[in-house]
Design a protein around this nucleic acid. Structure first.
Lengths: 335, 335
DNA sequence: GTGTGTCATGCACACGTTTGCACAGAAAAA
DNA sequence: TTTTTCTGTGCAAACGTGTGCATGACACAC
């Protein structure tokens, strides 16, 4: 029992397929009587137009591909939610690929998506990617491409990124305004643009408030493993920091616990601020102040940009670059 | 500049499209010379077979749809990762839908997937779903359907679920073996099968070790908000529990913190066990013992089952039901 | 010369839809 | 009555591919 087609309806009602097609689309050239007869038969037999046939005709399948480097990940899953919601609203389907931070899989994903003839691709680069030919391939095939978050510097195309700089600046200013002066920065290596931007935001906030920058207070500490070493060391120093500005919530959450164990009260003795505003911030005690990266918003904006390109509404010839504003969410770990 | 087709190659080499088609597929009927000439031209001009045309011909698009109730969610994102990895390995594409726990969107997602003519659907039911007509519609359209985790009891089809009962039983036995007797169960309302199965596992573990079941130790407490009320109350009682078996990691994480604040040492005075083994378990101090639900494995198994159905390798006429074994991951919060 | 066999290729059709154009019949205008 | 206009419908082609069958050329055996 396969799906009923236009031809089947035509045969059953002794009409031609073209008449049936027109009747279904309410073409005024078809008499009211025939139209009703056809539509009645169609609904009765649950006719569904074959999307594949339509796609072949128009050479468009209303599908966009998305490549995510990691999915078991608060931020990226949030972005994916935004992408899906917006794409669904605009009647696009989503072909989902997962590179798992692996260059080879990223290349394969691009191939898959191009083979599937998607109208456009949303991508966030894997950490291990050093060559960009596969991304160039997308553009060479006249498929639209928008990068989000982890943009690929080697490729000239539209992108959407988080305003890490302003996020860090705001957060550190908040720490300063609530009375902290010795503020530690637990960051990552400056190779990553996001880490670098946040460091610059941190430094500029201090400068703005005439606080000197102390290199001893700036550490590479972006994993719980590192935190286990770095944080106790800083807490035990003669001049422990009055605040920790952490590059992610994992380190932030661990930091609140370590400070409490060392006998400090959070936030009265030591303030802590994280980055991402994941659900980790709700299970710490006190709850963790954090910078919300608004991944959902990023996903929506990325899809909108891509669809505007696809449908020719965004005609700007150069590259379009959108900045997502962060939002400081003050909770219990800062005063 | 559109993509090159078989016809283009045919015209360029003064052959018929059928010859080119056969040449590309290495049909021995075509002379070696022609084959080489065609393939050379094809690679030079980056010929890609048009998937849409193939799909129309065969009426199969090698795509499976997945409906997830929530995506910013450790467990479901893990399952999705498993689904994607396995589907990719088997050369299937993934059409991704997100119901966001909303019945209306779930119905719309099913429609979308059926319109797209997917070969099969993997679905986990939304919390607000009370009617099942849309799922029945899938089966009526001869599209294969496999439920995972949140199975729909109203529909007779294949499913993959976590062995919650054994997971709970194991975990509670571990608590007992490490010297705890008064073990609290922080669960959810028994309406949900998963909550019910875990409660039964908890009770059977106690029975097995001849520990009486104390209703005072069993509470509904599946959110951090509830935990803020329930846990302090239990800790302050005359006979505080020696262990907490929690229905999720959020409550478990919060529990370790509350116990420490109340002056108990974890795990020496009080043991805590969570459920899911999310990354929350790594940022608590001590790290949180938890029951791993092996979502990645579940995703893989679900896809395998679905593809076996699609490709006719699983011919069992009745419904196939797979149970995913859980694994207790002992960390710092239990002895 | 006729028959048989092999090899390489092309024709035609199919998948399900849409659409420009032609056409038949009826109604309206001359 | 003849011509024009209008109305409703069908034909054919197209999208890109794969495949059964026919065809034509050539070689070889009788």
């Amino acid at each position: 029992m396969r799906q009923i087609t236009l031809k089947d309806i035509a045969k059953a009602l002794d009409l031609s397929p073209s008449t049936v097609s027109r009747a279904m689309r309410n073409n005024p050239a078809i008499s009211m009587e025939t139209r009703e007869r056809v539509q009645e038969y169609a609904t009765k037999h649950k006719y569904k137009p074959n999307a594949l046939a339509l796609q072949l005709r128009t050479n468009r399948n209303n599908t966009i591909g998305v490549i995510v480097p990691e999915i078991v990940h608060y931020f990226f899953s949030t972005v994916l939610a935004g992408i899906q919601d917006e794409a669904e609203k605009k009647n696009y389907n989503l072909l989902f690929c997962h590179s798992n931070e692996d260059y080879e899989r990223e290349v394969k994903s691009v191939e898959t998506l191009l083979d599937a003839r998607v109208c456009g691709i949303l991508a966030s680069q894997s950490k291990t990617t050093r060559q960009f030919d596969h991304f160039q391939e997308i553009i060479d095939n006249n498929v639209h491409l928008v990068f989000f978050d982890r943009i690929c510097t080697g490729i000239n195309t539209d992108k959407v990124v988080v305003d890490d700089y302003a996020g860090a600046l705001n957060a550190v200013e908040h720490l300063i305004m609530t009375g902290c002066k010795r503020i530690a920065f637990l960051g990552a290596t400056s190779l990553l643009p996001i880490a670098n931007n946040r460091r610059m935001g941190y430094e500029d906030a201090l400068r703005k408030h005439k606080i000197s920058i102390d290199a001893n207070l700036m550490r590479v500490c972006d994993t719980v493993e590192l935190a286990k070493v770095v944080i106790p060391e800083m807490l035990q120093s003669d001049h422990p920091p009055e605040a920790f500005f952490c590059i992610n919530d994992e380190v932030g959450a661990y930091c609140t616990r370590m400070a409490a164990l060392a006998g400090f009260h959070v936030p009265d003795d030591i303030s802590v601020c994280g980055f991402t505003n994941s659900y980790l911030t709700e299970v710490t005690h006190p709850t963790l102040t954090s910078v919300d990266q608004r991944g959902y918003e990023m996903g929506k904006v990325a899809v909108q940009l891509l669809i505007n390109r696809i449908e020719g509404r965004e005609t700007k010839p150069g590259i379009v670059s959108r900045l997502i504003k962060t939002e400081l969410v003050v909770k219990g770990s800062t005063r």
